[in-house]
């Protein structure tokens, strides 16, 4: 047991997420970033190794308490990599690009143990984090700025439910292009309704369809643009339930599927099987069939899963603030974002 006092910051974050005080993933990312900045500047650490341990403990805490929350852990994981880099930089022993040759010939003594106490580390870390924060904050705009590359005149775009990133993206495209959007309502949460109203208010021609009409509609759709909960290490998605069917329908009609995702949604996690128990969570069945349905509920099972796994072969393009990438490239992005040793914490 680690001493609990030091975890109060992260447990506050967890409780805020649970209490739904912070909702959007961007807010979670910013909060986690703030939390680490606080830790770096105020925390009790002497060497980079100690600091890294503190961060790792926090990641573990989040994983234990919110097994399906990826954003906060990813931001922290990225900061771990930042710490490593800054340390290497400061200690002037930066290993230039780990080529195979170097890896093989590396002498055990060469491996950094991050135990030296460096004076400038704290300030340079804070600087780096401030930069990172700017990157986080502008990520949405950066993605939206690419909209005109992907959406063209008179196209029909299909999207599912509500995603802040997609909303921004479409609205940004609407400034220069005239196109139509088909919004799938995404029952039983009906986020699609909110999305549709918001798009229509920005003067985009919007059509709302029920979840069942996706296949029928797909033959007329030019592009599918969706958001996601996380991007998995194999390029697959953990997205809102129902998106798997959308992606399959798109594949059937050879419609490109574009997934908008912030970098902090890229998670070094593999989900190979359709093991729903571990991967998914079920929300209250009350949204599917009302509690007042009475006796019938005694003898039936009702499922209301929150997520769907979308295999990478159904995704055409992942668009982050750095531009578009194929799902097969995700492994590389991950190695840029996080250090190999931090994948599995």
């Amino acid at each position: 047991m680690h001493d609990k006092e030091n975890l109060s910051d992260v447990s506050k974050l967890v409780s805020d997420i649970k209490h739904k005080n912070i909702l959007s993933s961007l807010d979670i990312a910013l909060r986690s970033e703030d939390l680490l900045k606080e830790l770096i500047s105020q925390g009790q650490w002497k060497s980079a190794r100690e600091l890294m341990n503190l961060v790792k403990i926090r990641i573990q805490y989040i994983k234990e308490n919110l097994p399906h929350e990826a954003t906060a852990a990813n931001v922290m994981r990225h900061v771990l990599k930042v710490i490593r880099e800054e340390y290497e930089c400061e200690s002037k022993r930066k290993v230039e690009g780990q080529s195979l040759h170097q890896l093989v010939t590396a002498h055990p003594a060469d491996v950094l143990d991050y135990s030296e106490s460096l004076i400038n580390l704290k300030t340079s870390l804070i600087d780096h984090l401030t930069e990172y924060k700017v990157e986080l904050e502008s990520s949405g705009e950066n993605i939206a700025a690419q909209a005109s590359e992907h959406i063209h005149m008179d196209e029909i775009i299909l999207t599912v439910g509500k995603s802040d990133t997609v909303e921004k993206f479409l609205k940004s495209a609407a400034k220069v292009r005239a196109f139509k959007v088909v919004v799938v309502e995404a029952a039983p949460l009906y986020y699609g309704h909110k999305m549709a109203v918001s798009l229509a208010k920005s003067n985009i021609q919007t059509t709302v369809i029920s979840d069942a009409a996706v296949f029928a509609m797909m033959s007329r759709v030019n592009k599918v643009i969706i958001g996601t909960h996380t991007v998995l290490a194999n390029g697959g998605l953990r997205a809102a339930s129902g998106i798997h069917a959308v992606a399959l329908a798109a594949k059937h009609y050879s419609v490109p599927v574009m997934v908008l995702s912030h970098m902090y949604k890229f998670t070094p996690l593999y989900v190979g099987s359709h093991n729903q128990e571990a991967f998914n969570i079920c929300a209250s069945p009350a949204n599917v069939i009302p509690y007042s349905a009475g006796k019938i509920l005694n003898s039936i099972q009702v499922f209301n899963p929150v997520f769907d796994y979308v295999p990478p072969e159904l995704v055409t393009l992942l668009i982050s603030h750095q531009g578009g990438n194929a799902p097969s490239y995700v492994y590389r992005l991950l190695s840029e974002l996080y250090h190999q040793d931090d994948y599995d914490i």
Binding site: P290, Y291, S292, G294, K295, I296, L297, N298
Partner: peptide, 11 residues
């Protein structure tokens, strides 16, 4: 109060 049909186990 909550709506619940007659015969439901939770009622």
């Amino acid at each position: 109060l909550q709506e619940a049909g007659i015969g439901h186990i939770g009622r």
